[in-house]
Design a protein around this nucleic acid. Structure first.
Lengths: 350, 350
DNA sequence: TTGATTTATTGGAACGTTCCATCTATAGGC
DNA sequence: GCCTATAGATGGAACGTTCCAATAAATCAA
């Protein structure tokens, strides 16, 4: 196996009979080189199986072309969609983003960020893990590396955030449920150490208050932002004396879990209990029953985040405006057909 | 903004009143340093907001601790599960894997691989995009960087592959369908430029031949390995004069698509048409109806691939054994209850 | 005391690039 | 023929680390 000790620019130079400077120039596509020379050099590059050493180059140039994308849960298709949006714009800019998963673990996140930084990334797009301490990004900011938060943000931080209008989305969804006649509502999933949680819950509560649902008729159950979390939430809520008849879920994964738990109990989402999700992942449309959800234009947010990042890098700043994306409620089947209120009657199939 | 021109090891040395060598030693956790000195140095590191420059270090050490993971479709939850398995073992080894998505595009894949290589990765775990040319990894092999294929492999290549027993999985699934009494079978999705495709299709055909399904009663429809692809496959197949009554799908995504298309036609998976998937992603269990699928222990394969990679790096070789993972058929509802066949009773009792 | 050994620390060369300043040819203007 | 301009190519210093060989200081054996 031709493990000939890694060819360098000097090997190429020797092979082609020019100086290393010339090779460097060719590598950068400089117009200062006579075409025939360039051809000769390129042939040599091919011959020796050269691979460019970006680390060495960055040592001089001091700005790399790699961008890190730190994601809190890769198994949630929502984040894959977000990533895809970003990749679209980075690809056009000739940048390859590296994705790293933190699995919702702040310690892992710390490692991941450290590693990315050491690698000399030009910027970082982050959806912070839950429980991230406010100081976690201090060092990064100090290092002057631009960061943008996507979807999630941190309590008090100067870091720009790209996120959907969570408050409004939750409001719309809640309004929809109330419009369907529901009078005992729940908010399922998420946890109060997430800023997004407060945004969404806030929208829920505001709608309840505006439309006459007293606090006594509201059930709020925190839980994991996953299918499993959703299942647990439903169980908890139905154990109450006067259980809710409808729920707004923190995200679609939670909503899927809720629907699953309903099915396990012999209940049907839509008919027996209304559920609405948040994010509108691709699956929502195909679920059975199809999930009513707050659409946030996920790839669009990804693109936006990428653009902001590019801008920050270009203007060598570490600041940028927040961006709140528009949302809309996509009504499907999981809240049932319009029906004139049920007030009571859980219709709890034995 | 403290953009104080990137602190280096020398700044720390000055700050702490020691030499750069000492700082370097501390950074590496060498035991040669007097504890008090180490403390002093660490304090200085903290004070100046130092970030380690791995690029510069690699220039000397020549082996990095980053591993690239190149995935052909991040939106397929299957690959996210694979990634999670790998991460588990890399994390334990103190390595942060960088994930990059090729979106099933060989050109993009080329860029991604180039970028990763230039970054000086220690190894590459790849699920090659469909249509990858056989020569695509020649340069990488020549560069002496260890590569392992996960899930997919390339026609003639010395690169070790970690994959499930595709042939056997397909055989089991087909056998199951025939056992249910089906006599006109289909194989949906995938395309012949994928080695896996031939493996799976091969298992299907072998089972058909062994169990007496003549070629005339077999429908094979190539298609995208996605939900959309599955929908198209079903439409194509049902348009035939004597349409199949059951299908083995290339993967779960295709199977979901098939079930979706069935529903659109007012048919029900299980009762009206049997479908079995491949991969057994988490969703399969929760689908409606729950999908019968070939379980491949995805995270286990991920772990395996990671272990092989670690081994290769450690023993500085570029060769390793292939690994074929065990598979099993998980029977759920999408093939319907046992029924005494159309055609003839395959004696599938209870 | 001397020399040997151990413990802590250090300077300098090397790693593979970029980029500036310099150099050599050739061409053009007169 | 001489001077200047220009195109093309080049050597060397610098980037931030590691690691070897060397040193200095402390300890020990005799």
């Amino acid at each position: 196996m031709a493990s000939r000790a890694k060819a360098t620019i000097l090997d190429i130079a020797r092979e082609a009979g020019v100086s290393k400077s010339t090779v460097s120039l060719v590598l950068q596509g400089s117009g200062l080189i006579r075409p025939e020379t360039a051809v000769k050099v390129r042939k040599a590059i091919e011959d020796v199986g050269y691979v460019y050493n970006r680390g060495a180059a960055n040592l001089r140039k001091a700005h790399s072309n790699v961008i890190g994308m730190v994601i809190n849960d890769l198994t949630n298709p929502f984040f894959a969609e977000l990533a895809v949006g970003m990749e679209r714009v980075f690809q056009a800019a000739g940048i390859v983003p590296f994705i790293a998963n933190t699995a919702e673990n702040p310690v892992r996140q710390e490692e991941v960020l450290k590693s990315l930084l050491e690698q000399g990334v030009a910027g970082l797009i982050v959806s912070p893990a839950r429980g991230t301490t406010p100081g976690a990004f201090r060092r990064i900011e100090a290092a002057g590396v631009p960061v943008v938060f996507a979807m999630r943000r941190l309590p008090e931080s100067r870091i720009p955030a790209i996120a959907p209008d969570n408050h409004r989305g939750a409001y719309l969804a809640t309004q929809h449920l109330i419009g369907k006649g529901h009078r005992r509502l729940a908010f399922f999933g998420g946890s109060s150490d997430l800023v997004v949680y407060h945004d969404r819950l806030g929208g829920f509560i505001e709608a309840c208050e505006a439309l006459g649902i007293p606090a006594a008729n509201r059930t709020i159950v925190e839980g994991e932002t996953s299918r499993r979390g959703g299942m647990a939430c439903l169980e908890t809520a139905l154990a109450a004396a006067e259980p809710p008849t409808a729920a707004l879920c923190f995200n679609d994964a939670v909503a899927f879990g809720v629907m699953l738990a309903l099915r396990k109990r012999g209940l049907e989402a839509g008919a027996d209990f209304a559920v609405v999700g948040f994010d509108d992942v691709a699956e929502a449309e195909h679920y059975m029953p199809a999930l009513t959800s707050v659409a946030v234009d996920t790839p669009g947010l990804g693109e936006r985040a990428a653009h902001v990042m590019l801008k920050m890098i270009q203007s060598r700043t570490t600041r940028a405006e927040d961006h709140i994306g528009a949302v809309s409620l996509v009504v499907r089947e999981s809240c049932g057909p319009s029906r004139s209120a049920r007030g009571s009657g859980m219709g709890d199939a034995a």
